[in-house]
Simulated scan of single mutants.
Amino acid sequence: MSPRSQGYLYVAITMCIWGGFTITSRLNAQWGISAWDITALRFALAFCILMPILLYKKDTAFLWKKQPFILAMIGGVAYCLTSYSAFHYVPAAHAAIFLNGCIPLCTALAGLVLFKQPLGKHIWISLVIMLSAITAMSFLMYQETGVAFGFGDMLFFLSAIWWGVFTVLLRQWKLSAWHSMAGVAIWSAIVYVPIYLLFLPKNLTAPEPAHLMLQVIFHGIFVVIVATLTYVEAIKRLGAFKTGSIVTLAPFMAAILAVPLLGEPLSLAIICGLIGMAIGALQPWRWIGHQDSLQQQLDQQKKQS
């Protein structure tokens, strides 16, 4: 299999997992699994898998640096609690709009605020499209329901801010995929699980055991470990822009699938928001004349030879 084909395979795996995150997180609300519970179980399982591997490899020195701890608190604990909680208030389509649709924007703004990284013209175009889509969506929602935004929407947007800051810090600190993934999972478990056991409400007896086990395995292994590694491998082969653009489609596809699978409504307001945020996040005009990283490497080799 060629490197390009491998890249698309890794992208497909990542898309399935990211899309599944949206569907299964909404199922958490329907199955009575609280955000407190799934966050604790997710990181506890990842800890039990990753910590023995790190000890066996004698690769634990990186854990004592401040970077993995900060990343865990932002992209691990804070992101999971707000995003999982939001699914208890609003349908899955809202996640595609206010979470995944806003992540590119929040990432760009986080880079500007934290490290003075300038906003390019493509970001400004996306900003105008996204704000227009949200304005139109809120107007239509207000006409339909009398409420423009819900509490869940605010939680999703807060989650997008957490993930934007996490992405910028991860890019700035240049941690490897393995260290960043393992550090986030392990420090999140070390900090959050004891707090959960001692102080936070638990509702582990209400859900069906099969439902609870399914969610823990999917979120603890596939979301935390597998998707992180496949996403980074796809970037190596296809480049960050092409990989990010394709993978961004997954939550929007999941929002559409949630209509028949979960029986969720799809109003004119939601359709307007989905289309506008998808265009703003994907930036399809940048695909014209864009080469992936593999093709750029081949062209560079030809010039040198």
Score class of each variant (00 low, 15 high):
Ser132Asp: 04
Ser132Tyr: 02
Ser132His: 03
Ala133Gly: 07
Ile134Ala: 04
Ile134Lys: 06
Ile134Val: 15
Thr135Gly: 12
Thr135Tyr: 06
Ala136Ser: 09
Met137Gln: 10
Ser138Glu: 13
Phe139Leu: 08
Leu140Asp: 01
Leu140Gly: 02
Met141Arg: 15
Met141Gly: 10
Met141Ser: 15
Gln143Pro: 05
Glu144Arg: 12
Gly146Trp: 04
Gly146Ala: 09
Gly146Tyr: 11
Gly146Met: 10
Val147Glu: 04
Ala148Pro: 04
Ala148Glu: 08
Phe149Lys: 00
Gly150Lys: 09
Phe151Leu: 15
Phe151Ala: 14
Gly152Ala: 12
Asp153Leu: 10
Met154Leu: 14
Met154Gln: 08
Met154Asn: 11
Leu155Pro: 00
Phe156Arg: 04
Phe156Val: 08
Phe156Trp: 12
Phe157His: 02
Phe157Lys: 05
Leu158His: 00
Ala160Met: 11
Ile161Tyr: 03
Ile161Val: 15
Trp162Lys: 03
Trp163Glu: 01
Trp163Phe: 14
Gly164Ser: 07
Gly164Cys: 10
Val165Lys: 00
Phe166Ala: 05
Phe166Leu: 09
Val168Met: 10
Val168Ala: 11
Leu169Tyr: 03
Leu170Asn: 14
Leu170Ala: 08
Arg171Asp: 07
Gln172Ala: 14
Gln172Glu: 11
Gln172Gly: 01
Lys174Leu: 05
Lys174Ile: 00
Lys174Gln: 13
Lys174Met: 07
Leu175Ser: 12
Leu175Val: 12
Ser176Arg: 02
Ala177His: 04
Ala177Lys: 00
Ala177Tyr: 00
Trp178Cys: 00
His179Ala: 07
Ser180Asn: 14
Ser180Lys: 10
Met181Arg: 05
Met181Trp: 12
Ala182Cys: 15
Gly183Ala: 06
Gly183Gln: 01
Gly183Trp: 07
Val184Glu: 00
Val184Trp: 01
Ile186Asp: 06
Ile186Cys: 08
Ile186Trp: 08
Trp187Cys: 05
Trp187Arg: 03
Ser188Phe: 07
Ala189Tyr: 00
Ala189Arg: 01
Ala189Gln: 05
Ile190Asn: 10
Ile190Glu: 07
Ile190Lys: 11
Val191Cys: 09
Val191Leu: 07
Val193Leu: 14
Pro194Asp: 13
Ile195Ser: 13
Ile195Asp: 09
Tyr196Phe: 14
Leu197Phe: 14
Leu198His: 15
Leu198Val: 15
Phe199Ser: 15
Leu200Pro: 05
Leu200Thr: 06
Pro201Gln: 11
Lys202Val: 08
Lys202Leu: 06
Lys202His: 13
Asn203Thr: 12
Asn203Glu: 10
Asn203His: 10
Asn203Ala: 14
